[in-house]
């Protein structure tokens, strides 16, 4: 039997909102699947489309930009 698909998701989170939100999710002990790998940026506007392509090209199964 093959293992169930576990996506590896690269997440670009804005330091001031989404990253703070992810921290608050922790303080509130909200549980979610452990598939995110977070890259902190100072603004979601910092995310060059090239970064997204790079993540996908190098093996990420999905990309989340939150800000």
């Amino acid at each position: 039997m093959t293992e169930p698909f576990e996506p590896n998701i690269a997440a670009f989170l804005c330091n001031w909102c989404a990253y703070a939100g992810a921290d608050l999710a922790g303080v509130s002990r909200l549980q979610y699947p452990p598939n995110l790998r977070t890259v902190r940026v100072m603004c979601s506007g910092r995310v060059d489309p090239v970064f997204i392509i790079q993540a996908l090209k190098e093996g990420a199964d999905g990309v989340l930009v939150a800000g």
């Binding site: 690269a10 790998r37 790079q54 190098e58």
Partner: peptide, 14 residues
């Protein structure tokens, strides 16, 4: 760019 790209490369492979 280089610093972010290094993080992305490290993130892309579990």
């Amino acid at each position: 760019n280089q610093q972010i790209e290094a993080t992305i490369s490290a993130a892309a492979i579990s």
